[in-house]
Amino acid sequence: MKEKHKQLHQQYVNNLTKQKRYVRLTQCSMLLFFFVFWEVAAALKWIDPLLFSSPSRVWELLLTRIQDGSIVTHTSVTLSETVAGFLLGTALGTVMAGFLWWSPFLSKVLDPYLVVLNSMPKVALGPMLIVGLGPGFTSIIAMGALISIVITTLVVYNAFKEVDENYLKVIRSFGATKRQAFFSVVFPASYPSIISTLKVNVGLSWVGVIVGEFLVSKQGLGYLIVYGFQVFNFTLVMLALLVIAVLATIMYQFVELLEKKLIRRHHT
């Protein structure tokens, strides 16, 4: 009997691995197909190679740009701006949410303003930022932060409010101050919501930074896109897009890793 169970379990595990392998295989072949189709379509002029370039040309450009070091500079500029904007937006949004939780009066007063700010397209504030902070990386980081700060405030504040009253009852029965209640209960209980806003913010801060670079910069991937567009070098545009796709994915994976570490115990 035991032997039979073991066998069945082995079979079950094998099935799972097999399924996973099929998923991965399909994913890889889709990607491969995309690039092959793109290359062939460009070579056979199904699509205009001047507009859509081709993988081989993007690859060649990547190699030369790596050799002269320029892609590394542009990438590191954009990446540091994005990471800074992302961290700043998330941190300030969370702190703001903390203040709203602390003072119900403040939260009532600010409610309509937050609603307006949230529905406002933040990139439209770009010109104002540049006028205020100067045409440099400060404005670009501010753009990356601004785009995520309001939504972070709203989502995290809601999470703070929805912490089970009974957890608070427990900590208050030990005579906890409001500060203690916040840091030992409200904040850790809201990790799951904070993490899920992080995931959204990864995408948002890329939007903010790229748009910011469109508007002012002399460096960065956003600048490469605008420049490539202006001189009709779409190979350069495609290269910048691919680099952004890879980096944004890596950043997202990073947040997921953080999620696993922080909230693996959160499900009761």
Binding site: A176, P188, I263, T268
Partner: peptide, 26 residues
Amino acid sequence: GYMLQQDYLFPWLTIEENITIGLKTM
């Protein structure tokens, strides 16, 4: 001391951290 209908142990803390949180708070 107060004990509720459900345990309301903090899920992000170990049992040891849970049982000492009152002492820590005080």
